[in-house]
Design a protein around this nucleic acid. Structure first.
Lengths: 108, 108
DNA sequence: ATTATTAATCGTAATATTGCAATAAACGAA
DNA sequence: TTCGTTTATTGCAATATTACGATTAATAAT
């Protein structure tokens, strides 16, 4: 036990949950925030600015990349990470639709 | 060592992460979906419709309640749960602002 | 009062996530 | 080539989350 029973939920429910996990840790929120606002997007700079170990940042970057929300570009020995705008828009669409549901009944 | 270092992140980053956790599990997404669309909002109905054990649903409901996204009302032996619209709007505002950030630089 | 129904809580088992040191891999510079 | 720089991966320890049976608590029904 302790395993999420994905099979009993709809695809949409599983997808929302998977995407939401991207934002469910402050380190990933911080990384994304940096990628949006920063003039630079080099992995090493993220490590320096956020203050977690390099291995930890690398792991979070990998998760964000697996979700498709960011993409990486090798530049010599460093790697430049950027928001994947197409995927970001898709994610935004899915989540905001969920957030904008109408309440049919409110009895409390 | 397995502990999220909340103290090195901003309040906003921690808050986004905390709220996102509400949606980071399909069971909670399913519960919220039911509370939005359903004509009923009784805990027992959720257990029946979602197909997880009563204790498990109860635990997820507790988390959603702790976040303030839902509220419960005792009705005899059953409990009616509803979306807390005020908190839901606050959450929506915070997350959509995050989603709508402008990309300053896109080098990949 | 006794019994049935409903939901919360407790205890426990299992899996998932987080964090980092150490190491590896890949490249540029000397 | 050799050394330094940068990032990914591995291995491990610790905490967090998920799930559920069993129990408890509270109320309704008989």
């Amino acid at each position: 036990m302790g395993v999420t029973k994905s099979e009993i939920f709809t695809d949409a429910q599983n997808k929302i949950a998977t995407l939401a996990k991207a934002f469910a840790h402050p380190a990933r929120v911080a990384i994304l925030h940096q990628l949006f606002k920063s003039e630079t997007c080099i992995c090493g700079d993220l490590v320096h600015e956020i203050g977690l170990a390099q291995a930890t940042i690398s792991q979070h970057l990998k998760e964000l990349k697996n979700l498709g929300l960011i993409k990486g570009n090798i530049e010599g020995t460093s790697v430049c990470y950027c928001i994947n705008e197409k995927k970001w828009q898709e994610m935004k669409q899915l989540l905001t639709t969920f957030f904008n549901q109408e309440i049919k009944l409110n009895c409390c």
